[in-house]
């Protein structure tokens, strides 16, 4: 029996804007099992971003329960939420969010600096291993401005992996990348998923969602569909792309 990494029940989130009440999420329920690769889709205004913030423990639901790895999030205070983010969630952002003038290795070490149980030596070892996992062991001492967009996103993925989280939360992680690089990044996500990582991937691009194992669609704060999909292989899609001469990895 596989565990529920994520369990959401009757989740609502209402924002109060002056007199008006905006219902971003109107009561949604779903759960994600360990090893799933879920895409969350929806147009802007569908509540996708709000859901992502709640899944990432950056925001709390107005009503409803949210359990991550068996922990009820709504009962936690700010400090414990921070610890939860640090230990259980790995974020990957659309705009990479790397620190300027900081080497790839130090970027990846960053989450471990906020983890008092990890010492300096272990931190370095784990950061190196995470960079190896994303295929950047030869770029450890490069600064972001010396890396391509795809490489920068892979540094960000390594940073998300380094704390060995129960779930990787990707927010439009391919949004800033061209098709070929997007496929490469998706191929990396697929191989991480194959190693057992649970991934929630927020996107509005259907072709990217095709690389996941399950697709949840949101509209106006409600889930309109939640289906298992026939997963395409990103590496095959990559091979099928017309070759370009001016592109080098």
């Amino acid at each position: 029996m596989t565990n529920d990494v994520l369990k959401i029940e009757h989740l609502t989130r209402t924002f109060v804007m002056g007199e008006e009440r905006v219902h971003a999420l109107r009561g949604i329920s779903f759960s994600v099992k360990e090893g799933e690769f879920v895409s969350i889709m929806g147009t802007s205004g569908s509540g996708k971003s709000t859901l992502l913030n709640i899944l990432g423990c950056l925001d709390k639901p107005t009503k409803g329960d949210y359990l991550i790895d068996g922990v009820a999030v709504s009962e936690l205070d700010d400090a414990n939420l921070s610890t939860l983010r640090n230990r259980k969630i790995g974020f990957v952002f659309q705009s990479y969010n790397l620190l300027p003038r900081t080497s790839a290795l130090e970027q990846v070490e960053l989450p471990l600096l906020y983890n008092a149980t990890v010492g300096g030596k272990e931190r370095r070892e784990r950061a190196k291993y995470a960079l190896e996992q994303v295929g950047l062991s030869d770029r450890m001492h490069h600064f972001p401005n010396q890396l391509s967009g795809g490489q920068q996103q892979r540094v960000a993925i390594a940073r998300a992996l380094v704390n060995d989280p129960v779930m990787i939360l990707a927010d439009e992680a391919t949004g800033n990348l061209d098709t070929r690089t997007s496929y490469e990044v998706m191929s990396l996500f697929q191989s991480l998923n194959a190693q057992g990582k649970t991934i929630c991937f927020v996107t509005h691009e259907p072709d990217i969602a095709n690389f996941t194992t399950r697709s949840i669609r949101l509209k106006d704060g409600l889930i309109i569909s939640d289906t298992a999909i026939k997963t395409l292989s990103a590496s095959e899609a990559l091979a099928a792309l017309p070759a370009t001469e001016d592109y080098e990895l």
């Binding site: 950056l58 921070s82 983010r85 640090n86 230990r87 969010n97 960053l110 906020y114 940073r159």
Partner: peptide
């Protein structure tokens, strides 16, 4: 600001 947001998202408490 963005760096601070990132630090918070990867587990930095307000106090940190």
């Amino acid at each position: 600001t963005k760096e601070i947001g990132l630090r918070m998202s990867i587990g930095a408490r307000k106090q940190y």
